[in-house]
Design a protein around this nucleic acid. Structure first.
Lengths: 205, 205
DNA sequence: CATTCTTTCTAACAACTGTTTGGTAGAGTA
DNA sequence: TACTCTACCAAACAGTTGTTAGAAAGAATG
């Protein structure tokens, strides 16, 4: 490996690290104040630089949102794929998917908040078409799991499947708005309690 | 009643009606595109007038949001009060509150969506302090109901009450983002299914 | 008919937005 | 030391934003 090559790699790595830092900051601000209501100057402020300096690292405000969301979604789907490929039963698959979802919230909380609050607005641009595609795929995954579970007798069959799907989707992901790392409960503990509620209900038997 | 008086009342009523019309339009646009991302010209467009003309009826864009949200919250709390004053058992109170919540979503869908998406951002202004107060009151109401239900044996007592509260709160209100009047299911039917899920869970017994 | 009142339009404003351009401090390299 | 490259700053840009002031159309009133 030539010195020239090593240097190029070193600076490329440093650059990527700085990008990631800035993206984390941006995601935090976007999640807190809302993407549209946040100015690039506010993001830069939070990062300790000036507004224009962001454009050395990123093409546009939009491309920041793009990178934040696509990074998160890629990681999430990779995790989901691992679960789906494990060949578990319906109940166990649901359990694993929910646990994995709370793991995603733990690792990508600001991105999840952004996905929820801004995806409908952003998806109007063709650049963010993958948001719609992800939503479609998500619905397909859950609907087929729930139908399979109802067929196999794991889940109740007297409920509207589409409603159950939304019920689970909403319950899990909205948790990103209040979850905080290092809080009273860990992501795993929350997942466990959520599962107990979703599966068994809150009524005393 | 003098003619003078009748006229004054007539124009005042007409004026209030026009305000309500414009507010309904504004709420729809705010809910769809997001409050911050919506321009007053877009609201005016949707109402068939020009941007500046809105300022004959309203002081500012902010005061539109204010009126939309406070009107909704006042109605919601009036409905909740009626339920709480009925002196029902824990389980019946929960049932009635959830049914009432879906009723609110049915009647005030755009306002509910705004409340969810924008309240955190808006609440930074002192003008919207009532949003925080409403949230506090909401939490207090539900927490005491859930604790009472657990004490009286209506609800399971092995679950984290704060988590159950968020679970119910999120599940109910997020429905506003996908609910549409005249859809496959009525608000009452959705409330019924939601109740069955929350109380009994989705697992086959 | 003339007058008044209500609602809207026209046209502008100052502030703020995302973005660009050219410069510059400082670390690394020869 | 001189040079280069990286990451940032300083200052401006054009477009958009919420908002305002004055004119005007039209209905209601006398």
């Amino acid at each position: 490996m030539s010195p020239r090559r090593r240097d190029a790699e070193g600076t490329a790595a440093a650059r990527a690290e700085r990008r990631a830092e800035l993206l984390a900051t941006a995601a935090e601000v976007f999640a807190t104040r809302g993407y549209a209501a946040t100015t690039v100057r506010e993001v830069a402020d939070a990062a300790g630089i000036l507004g224009g300096s962001l454009y050395y690292h990123f093409d546009s405000k939009e491309s920041m949102a793009d990178e934040i969301l696509s990074t998160f979604l890629n990681e999430m789907w990779a995790a989901y794929e691992r679960v789906l490929d494990a060949g578990l039963g319906a109940r166990e698959t649901l359990t694993a998917l929910i646990a994995e979802s709370f793991g995603c919230i733990d690792r990508h909380r600001p991105a999840v908040v952004m996905y929820q609050n801004e995806s409908r607005h952003l998806a109007t641009s063709p650049r963010f078409a993958y948001l719609i595609e992800s939503r479609r795929r998500f619905e397909e995954m859950w609907m087929s799991l729930l139908e399979r579970g109802a067929r196999e007798g794991a889940f109740r069959s007297d409920l509207d499947t589409a409603l159950v799907y939304r019920f689970i989707r909403d319950t899990v992901w909205v948790a990103a708005t209040w979850y905080q790392r290092g809080g009273r409960l860990t992501a795993d503990q929350i997942a466990e309690q959520y599962l107990a509620m979703v599966l068994g209900g809150i009524q005393h038997e």
